[in-house]
Amino acid sequence: MSIKVTKVTKAKLSLKEKLDFFPAVASIVIAYIYALLTGLRRTERQAKSLSLHLGYAVFRKATTRLTTTQMQYILPPSHKIYEQHSKKTGRLPESVELGDGALGHWVGDRNADNVLVWFHGGGFGLPANMGYFKFYAQLLRDLKASGKSVAVFSLTYTLAPIAVYPTQLRQAVNCLRYILSQPNRDPSTVFLGGDSAGGNLVGGVLSHLAHPHAEIDSLPLHSNLGGAVMIAPWTLLEKNFPGIEIYHGGDIITTAVAGPWSAAYIGAGKRDYYTDLSTAPADWFTTFPVNSVLITAGGNEIMLPLIQDFAAKFKEGFENVELFVGYRECHVAPIYHLELGNTTKTEQGKKVEAVLAELMV
């Protein structure tokens, strides 16, 4: 079923933001040139290849220099990227209106034995890029080679600050609710996945299943979900990270985005265990209705210490948790590398495939 989206709400640009585009683009070009001149000799704390090094530098500068609304203005919305991918692969787009402004997009056969529900990242303010749909296609191809029948259901949630928390969490819960409402779909054949802000939503949905959010309808399960994957989950929405040594040159983001992205998502609300799972006590995780959880991170990403701390606390309350770190990889490398046109499979990507192949029926 293909649906036509006639109107997409975007945050409005101020006059200042409109006038700022030219100097912003100029600064990004300068950052690219600087990275080109200095990137021929790289250390282990930087990208493995020059092309990746340049891609990291451009994204790092763009996300630091441009506001969330500026990025939304120039980037195609998630559902348009999905339609482009469907056209390139010769498949009819199959999208579903989930209510509350959310859309779900099928990649692969919706009647497959297993469904991987994916929540994309981007600080809650950026749409899914083509790298996501290449990542889904790669997963489906390789899992099929392992004898697994899988489909991906990708959520398009309302971006911040157009909507704020808990809207995106409610949309993620209702996305899972829709999948579980399909005929003969047992929770054990449903898997959650997400990266960065999407990893935050994975944690938020698992939290809601175990501890229903006061503003979101509960979703009782008769058995555990098959598993969950959290790639570089953003589970601590702090603005500053004192006492942590951070080197930005090997990643695609900087600490400068933490404040604006967090503020856009939270709005006038308050942070809690659903937004900041890193602050939850260990026993919060004990009743999560999922068989197994994989957390991955890049060895060069700025969030690595925070992810390591989060995984350790998670494991205190929930035994079946594994942390995997990809050597010399950036934040959400399995997806962003594909967006840059680098098809060499990342260590994190290999690990995600191996774990899913083991868990799926």
Rank of each mutant, 00 (worst) to 15 (best):
D272R: 10
D272N: 11
D272Y: 05
D272M: 01
Y273D: 14
Y273K: 04
Y274L: 09
T275E: 06
T275P: 05
T275F: 12
T275Y: 07
T275N: 03
D276V: 03
D276Q: 06
D276E: 06
L277E: 10
L277N: 15
S278M: 04
S278C: 06
T279F: 03
T279C: 09
T279L: 11
T279I: 05
A280N: 11
A280F: 10
P281G: 03
P281M: 02
A282V: 06
A282G: 04
D283W: 02
W284V: 12
F285M: 02
F285W: 08
T286K: 15
T286V: 10
T286S: 15
T286Y: 05
T286D: 15
T287Q: 14
T287A: 13
F288K: 09
F288D: 02
P289F: 08
V290I: 00
V290M: 05
V290D: 14
V290C: 03
V290H: 06
N291A: 11
S292D: 14
S292R: 12
S292E: 04
V293R: 07
V293Q: 00
V293N: 00
V293Y: 00
V293M: 02
V293S: 00
L294H: 11
L294K: 02
I295E: 14
T296K: 12
A297Q: 09
A297S: 15
A297P: 15
A297F: 13
G298H: 06
G298T: 08
G298Q: 07
G298E: 06
G298W: 12
G299W: 04
G299Y: 05
G299R: 05
G299S: 14
N300G: 01
N300F: 08
E301M: 08
E301Q: 07
I302H: 12
I302E: 08
I302D: 04
L306D: 06
L306F: 10
L306K: 14
I307Q: 12
I307V: 15
D309G: 14
D309I: 09
D309Q: 14
F310N: 03
F310W: 01
A311W: 01
A312D: 15
A312S: 15
A312M: 12
K313E: 15
K313P: 10
F314E: 01
G317D: 10
G317N: 04
G317M: 02
F318Y: 06
E319V: 03
